[in-house]
């Protein structure tokens, strides 16, 4: 790993000022994507700004939303997001126990890995992504592979998940990386259904046909996903992922809670 300057700010304004203080900077949350990327020299920032001293962790309910601080670790979401069992269960299935003890919600969402789990919950639960300078609706936040609505230097502070009537997440995970080959998050709200798919395409996306079929009371059995724009790699081809999305959709619908 190339060396860097390490900043440990105590406030958001200090953090953004340090981020902008020259050279390439990166925010350090749980570090479980960033540090491996730096070891392999995919990332070589001149400065890291450690966000752990800003008080950005915690879980609390406000009305019809469950707010989770950006620095809340996966293990704490798994045990603390009791208002949305599907979200707690998703968090409990990320990586392994030691990864869940370090990785954070905000780090995962800001990184927007196309196979990460959290983006499916953020999109499926119509979440609001609050930052130091703006509020982003989930539908506008994810913009494709590793790309989000975040401006350079913008810091996610907390994420507000709409509490659904029922929800479930089904994931077929890669046995070594534990990332999703395909993951499908299904949520039922008074206003309708939301279905978000991760792992299958270049970024998380809503599956309109599945939402329409569930809204029409037709169930998930006849729903198919076109393979045209899906990922094809050494782990799975596009046709395989398309089929798997249907299987995960039906598993999720069968376990709605």
């Amino acid at each position: 790993m190339h060396d860097f300057a390490l900043h440990r700010p105590r406030s958001l304004s200090e953090a953004t000022a340090q981020f902008a203080s020259g050279g390439e900077a990166a925010y350090l949350a749980g570090g479980h994507t960033l540090l491996p990327a730096m070891k392999s020299r995919l990332r070589m920032p001149d400065a890291l700004v450690d966000l752990s001293g800003l008080g950005l962790s915690g879980i609390h309910r406000e009305g019809d939303r469950l707010w989770i601080g950006a620095m809340t670790r996966h293990a704490d979401v798994a045990s603390g997001a009791t208002a949305i069992p599907a979200l707690a269960s998703l968090a409990a299935g990320i990586g392994d126990a030691q990864v869940r003890n370090r990785g954070t919600l905000g780090g995962s969402v800001a990184n927007n890995d196309p196979a990460a789990d959290y983006p499916a919950a953020v999109l499926g639960l119509d979440a609001v992504v609050e930052t130091d300078r703006a509020t982003h609706a989930a539908d506008d936040f994810f913009q494709g592979m590793f790309t989000t609505a975040l401006a350079d230097g913008e810091i996610i502070t907390r994420i507000g998940f709409a509490i659904p009537q029922a929800a479930a997440y089904a994931k077929f995970r890669h046995p070594a990386s534990r990332y999703a080959i395909v993951g499908v998050f299904v949520a039922r709200f008074a206003a309708g259904w939301r279905v978000a798919v991760t792992g299958a395409g270049p970024g998380v996306f809503r599956w309109a046909e599945a939402e329409a079929a569930l809204a029409a009371g037709q169930g998930a059995n006849g729903v198919t996903l076109a393979a045209d724009d899906l990922n094809s790699d050494i782990h799975a081809g596009a046709e395989y992922r398309a089929h798997l999305a249907g299987v995960m959709l039906r598993q999720a619908v069968a376990t709605l809670a």
Partner: peptide, 26 residues
């Protein structure tokens, strides 16, 4: 050295972490 194998597990305030994926300064 890639956060997979767990040979580097130590406890931080009693909680197990992968010491290959934590900076000493953290």
């Amino acid at each position: 050295d890639t956060s997979q194998c767990g040979a580097c597990h130590v406890l931080l305030d009693g909680v197990a972490v992968k010491a290959c994926t934590v900076l000493a300064a953290q």
